[in-house]
Design a protein around this nucleic acid. Sequence first.
DNA 1: CGTCACATTGATGCCTCTCAAAGCTTGTGG
DNA 2: CCACAAGCTTTGAGAGGCATCAATGTGACG
Lengths: 195, 195
Amino acid sequence: MRALKERLGGAVKTIDLKTGETLFRQGDAARGMYLLETGRVRLVRHTPDGHQVPLHTVSPGESFAEASLFASEYHCDCVCLAAARVTLLPSCEIIGLLRSGDDAGLALVGRLAAHVRDLRARAELRAIRDVRLRLLSALRMRMDAAGRVRLQGSLKALAAELGMAHETLYRALADLQRGGHLGRHDGLITIRKRD
Amino acid sequence: MRALKERLGGAVKTIDLKTGETLFRQGDAARGMYLLETGRVRLVRHTPDGHQVPLHTVSPGESFAEASLFASEYHCDCVCLAAARVTLLPSCEIIGLLRSGDDAGLALVGRLAAHVRDLRARAELRAIRDVRLRLLSALRMRMDAAGRVRLQGSLKALAAELGMAHETLYRALADLQRGGHLGRHDGLITIRKRD
DNA sequence: CGTCACATTGATGCCTCTCAAAGCTTGTGG
DNA sequence: CCACAAGCTTTGAGAGGCATCAATGTGACG
């Protein structure tokens, strides 16, 4: 990501957004893809009858609007949820990079492919109905070889990511602990092996 | 798509599948991406608790398993829904094409980007808890300018895609119809405008 | 004409959301 | 150094919604 930005050098452009501001609208000519440096933005699509369909909420460090690299116009609105700084990577520069066969371009393709895999993994996780199994699967995906998980953020944030109420997550965690599936010690979760 | 195949020339390989056959399974060594010539195949992941997560249903002319280009093994199953003919495009050939900056490689990147967009849209849909709203949003995303939706597959398949029991979808559809949100006539669904 | 998959509706039970309250941790300001 | 606020963690009780089981109707297809 950084490499891509550096490779493009002066062609990138930094934009600051205030809460509620719109970066681009559905139908606007596509200028390129973006990197979210700080803050939070949301991609929203409008249906013909005026309703809104939220597509994605972007967190810092993520790229977004990659699909617009190959489109003539944006297919959704991008609105700012919390004061943000974004970097614009112009389509033509990116495409030039790809056309040149530059490694940074190849790396971008790899990231896109990884993105697809990651999104599919999340879809799988969310499809698990039972919250205990869902939580356990999520933890298994994050654990090291010894079965230990050190959570990055709060349990509450994890609950939101897994699509459950935070109370439900606490209860599920307690249940799994009672059932001997995992142990907890000051923020470190240890997952017991199962067959 | 055709361009990609022609560019690779003799490196491609044609495979015929019967209904129910499996092209590859989760964990198989990745050989490359595929092009669906005729028929229909589906990408499916299996969750630990035995549920299926349909990731994507491929129609003729589409490419699939692009993400496996940069992975050592496939991360989902590919099963044949209707007798199909597919073309295998080996990873190493494709990567060579990308490195050369060929237009066909560029088009591939565009498809990957579109895939990301599609998966995000699905994720956002599944995040809607109320089944009626979820169904309505899904229909809104598929309707034309006049608010009409002609479903591709069965309602049962749509239910699986939206992550709900098929009975629940029928009931939700009936509810929405009773509430005047939509109308149905021999397979065609018309969505009423709302303020 | 039988079989199979989809479509539809009913009844029931459980799981998760929601509201509520209390303990715990962290940070901040007086 | 204390007191207070704010956010996370945890547990309880209740209500509602969706999955599940079950049964029937329907259309396609061989």
